[in-house]
Design a protein around this nucleic acid. Sequence first.
DNA 1: TGCCCAACCAAGCAATTGCTTGGTACTGTA
DNA 2: TACAGTACCAAGCAATTGCTTGGTTGGGCA
Lengths: 207, 207
Amino acid sequence: MSTESATPAGATGATGATGRRRELLSIAAELFADQGFKNTTVRDIADAAGILSGSLYHHFDSKESMVDEILSSFQAELFAAYDEVLRSDDDARTKIERAVRLSFEAIDRHRHEVAIFQNEADFLGQQERFAYLAERNAQSRDVWITLLEDGLRSGALRADLDVELTYRFIRDTVWVAVRWYRPGGKLTHTDVADQYLTILLDGIAHA
Amino acid sequence: MSTESATPAGATGATGATGRRRELLSIAAELFADQGFKNTTVRDIADAAGILSGSLYHHFDSKESMVDEILSSFQAELFAAYDEVLRSDDDARTKIERAVRLSFEAIDRHRHEVAIFQNEADFLGQQERFAYLAERNAQSRDVWITLLEDGLRSGALRADLDVELTYRFIRDTVWVAVRWYRPGGKLTHTDVADQYLTILLDGIAHA
DNA sequence: TGCCCAACCAAGCAATTGCTTGGTACTGTA
DNA sequence: TACAGTACCAAGCAATTGCTTGGTTGGGCA
């Protein structure tokens, strides 16, 4: 009945996770990413973990709190990385390159989390509990608009660019790769970032 | 009990639709696009249409047959347009530009259908009934690989491009715009296509 | 007037859903 | 040996789901 989340198990802190807890979150993340949040049942998660569905509620108080924990801890890590790029004293073009590479690295290391955020943010964001998703979105936009405007001022980018549209172009281009990129495949995330940056910066047309 | 779809109402043909039927499909498409297929209940659709959920089954034999009809008729229209570009005698670069513009036009005119395909194709494609979705995907890849290889041969595109990766880049870039593009907004689909083509062909870096 | 038929209602059923409750097996610690 | 705590099971409940059944309404046509 209380609004406070009780953290039934361990209570190792906000991002806290005993071994088993982390394991279950990882299993849930894969299912949420592959089938969607709403479309994944607690029985699916329990089956994949080899336990009964009711037993999940020893570790978490709801299915929602699972996604919550998955998304919020990932976002915290991601935005810490963005901040570091912003605070660096690299030139504008280098910062843009670093921000792009950083995103592909995130896809490589946290593809389930990225996929969940891409697919479910709109739906989950309607609930007050997930209001931070919209805030993070705005924060991400701020980062990119800053980088692009710096690029324009410094002459690193072409003067005729529409900043808002370019931001969307980059954002979409980068994150949507989570749909096909698979770690351990033929291409490393660095390979993909190289090619994407080549196209993004210089285009596909013959010079 | 029969596997044949019975087309309860009108029976105006495969894509057939009386006025009311088309109306209900349009309502369903909007909900499927906004909330997801699995996450939209037949009661949601019925409520939006101002009728009871059971009444939907006078027009369609299942919720699945609704998406089926929505997606298959859209795909047919889309690929007819691709074919026309392929069969034209424009040069390689023009064909690429036309294919890109055509896609943004599809987003403008059929955003719900595009969104449903983007979001649900993987999930629905697992069922035999929706096997054509994967076929259409392969067909689309064929179109683009052909266009890109023509571009390379003719010297219109830079020689160092990875065709497969470039295809994915273009595909993702174009279709993902359905997430934010809204017809009747500040930018027309032609505006968006112009800017996207500028970035795609010549890049964002200062020359 | 009599009939047809598309469009809908009213009621409900079987399956699936997230989640609850009370109990049990095992492990480490004092 | 007693105890505490983690991780789980067994059973089931209330709500929601897609869909079915039998009946009603009202406009068009002969």
